[in-house]
Computed example of a mutant assay.
Amino acid sequence: MASNAQGSHMKALLVEDAAVETLFHSAILHMFHCETTVAKTGKEAVDLFLEGKKFDIVLCEKEMPVMNGLEAVEKIRAIGETDVKIVGVSVDCNAMEAFMSAGADVFVPKPITLDVLSAIIQEIINKKNNAMV
């Protein structure tokens, strides 16, 4: 598998059921050369991991049909996915504690700003580059 010379090629999973949010977050992730997969429910996200897919970052909305973001985060962690950076996102500013209890690494209230997402992605890129040294 060929890797990007800068080491910034990342795989992102966007777990979001709202079309506008999906477009916005996908555009930001694309700016960082992230290969983005979209899941419209928490169940779709969990199924991707169960199929053996690997991601560097997961942006997971709290409120979704079928399986919400909190349940998805718990299940992703329960199947042994500990290396992926999971970012819980919600308009509910009180969701931080719930996401952290579920196993998320970070909580970001919506709307997510470019600066906030940029800092998180840069941290992952730096970690990946340091792991390659």
Rank of each mutant, 00 (worst) to 15 (best):
F99K: 03
A12L: 05
N126T: 14
A78V: 05
A119M: 08
A12T: 05
L14V: 10
I79E: 10
H30M: 06
E97T: 10
G69K: 07
V87I: 13
A119L: 09
I112F: 01
T82E: 12
I112T: 04
L23P: 00
H30Q: 13
A5H: 11
N68S: 14
A102R: 00
F32E: 00
V133A: 15
T37L: 09
I124V: 15
K127V: 08
E74W: 00
H9D: 15
T41C: 14
K11V: 00
E16C: 03
G88E: 04
L59C: 10
D105K: 06
V87T: 01
K40Y: 13
T36P: 06
E44D: 15
M100L: 15
D56C: 08
N94C: 11
I121P: 00
D83G: 05
K40V: 12
V46H: 09
I125H: 00
N129D: 00
I124A: 03
V20G: 02
E16L: 03
V73P: 01
K127N: 08
L50S: 10
K40T: 15
A72E: 02
A19K: 12
A72T: 03
A18C: 01
E44M: 14
D17Q: 08
T22N: 04
I76S: 03
A45M: 07
C34F: 04
R77V: 09
V15Q: 08
V66A: 09
V89Q: 08
C34E: 04
I120P: 01
G42T: 07
M64E: 08
K11R: 13
I121W: 02
H33I: 02
M64Q: 07
T36K: 04
K110N: 12
V84A: 06
V46Q: 09
V58F: 07
A39D: 08
G52M: 11
K11F: 01
K85A: 10
L14G: 09
E74P: 00
H30D: 15
V38G: 06
G80Y: 09
F107R: 03
I57G: 03
T41G: 12
S118P: 02
A12D: 06
P65G: 11
A104Y: 06
E61A: 15
D92S: 05
A72F: 03
A5D: 13
G88W: 03
L13Y: 09
A19W: 04
H9F: 09
H25N: 14
C60Y: 01
V84K: 06
M132D: 11
D83Q: 08
N129W: 02
E21M: 11
R77G: 03
E123W: 00
G42Y: 05
L23Y: 05
S101E: 14
T82P: 00
G80A: 11
K128I: 02
F55Q: 07
G69V: 11
L14N: 08
A104S: 09
E63K: 12
C60R: 01
D105C: 10
A18G: 00
I120K: 10
L23R: 10
A39H: 11
T41H: 13
I28P: 02
M31D: 13
S101T: 11
F55C: 07
S90T: 10
I86R: 06
E81T: 00
E35L: 07
I28M: 12
D115F: 10
A104E: 05
H9K: 10
I28V: 11
G42E: 04
K128Y: 01
A131M: 12
